[in-house]
């Protein structure tokens, strides 16, 4: 059986794009010290909003913009609850996912069976969203490590009390980060409905949001690591699909477990390296998941 490496790589780039967007967004959120487990819910909302807008306007670009707006809007629910009402971030993120899945199942019905408008091909036969995703990696890296707002964002994530003491607006920084994460998750979800599957089906993100969360850990909160992780998972997904198409004597249902099992394996490897390695302290932002409440 022949699997042509170049064609696999091109398919891989496409399969990696939704996860790349969502994971980059979540990376920024987590670097600001917020753990948003609602990525799956924001992705599926983006998938539907993007598909609906693209279908109505005939323009995939408008679809992605709508998806970003929808993802960011949904993320503001999370922001309001966790930043103003100081709710538990794990539980609130879960609620966001459950709510997003329900909301899209409810409003998505009329769109089932419709087709998405064709994507505009970009350079080298890859669409513009793939390029945008790759381009975002150095941008996010540059922002976080080379700019003043990026430094403030990291300070807020590492020690929100110290950042607050220095006069930085912890809450505002976090809300902006959450909104950015929501917008990127929405665009990632829309890539699945507009560019990959080309239609809307209920629950179509199928855990991509959770895989994106795992990728952020795998990447050790580094944008370049997110790119590597997204490509790794794109690779596993494409190989698995190729093996299915080639009719390997393994049931389809078992082959389709591959991305999830790979996520677990990678998560275990990276956690073990951190636990047993010589590097000492972990790379996770020190204030990750802790609620911030200024006592005045």
């Amino acid at each position: 059986m022949m699997i042509d490496p170049l064609s696999v790589f091109i398919l891989l780039l496409g399969a990696a794009t939704p996860i790349l967007f969502a994971a980059l967004g979540e990376l920024v959120v987590e670097r600001a010290g917020v753990l948003n487990l609602g990525v799956e819910g924001m992705m599926i909302t983006g998938a539907l909003a993007g598909f609906a807008a693209a279908h109505a306007s005939g323009s995939p670009a408008l679809g992605f913009i709508a998806a970003a707006v929808a993802g960011a809007a949904l993320s503001m629910t999370f922001a309001a609850l966790t930043q103003f009402l100081l709710s538990n971030q794990v539980a609130t993120g879960l609620a966001l996912t459950l709510f997003g899945l329900g909301l899209t199942a409810m409003f998505g019905k009329p769109y089932e069976g419709m087709k998405a408008p064709a994507m505009m091909p970009g350079p080298l036969g890859l669409n513009w969203m793939i390029w945008l995703g790759i381009a975002l990696v150095p941008v996010v890296w540059w922002f976080l490590s080379r700019t003043r707002p990026g430094l403030i964002l990291r300070a807020v994530g590492e020690n929100h009390d110290a950042a607050h003491g220095l006069g930085y607006p912890v809450r505002r920084v976090r809300i902006l980060a959450i909104g950015f994460g929501g917008a990127l998750a929405g665009m990632g979800g829309a890539y699945i409905s507009i560019a990959t599957v080309l239609q809307w089906t209920e629950g179509m993100t199928a855990g991509a949001g959770w895989i994106a969360l795992a990728i952020v850990v795998f990447a050790q909160w580094n944008p370049w690591g997110v790119l590597a992780g997204a490509w790794l998972f794109g690779g596993v997904t494409v190989l698995q699909l190729r093996l299915q198409a080639a009719g390997v004597a393994v049931p389809v249902q078992l082959l389709s477990m591959a991305p999830y099992l790979a996520t677990i394996i990678v998560l275990v490897l990276i956690s073990a390296r951190q636990k047993f390695g010589r590097s000492g302290g972990g790379a996770a932002p020190a204030s990750l998941g802790r609620p911030f409440h200024a006592l005045k």
Partner: peptide, 10 residues
């Protein structure tokens, strides 16, 4: 030290 949230969900 793998996150039980992500593993149990996967």
């Amino acid at each position: 030290g793998a996150s039980e949230i992500l593993v149990s969900l996967m």
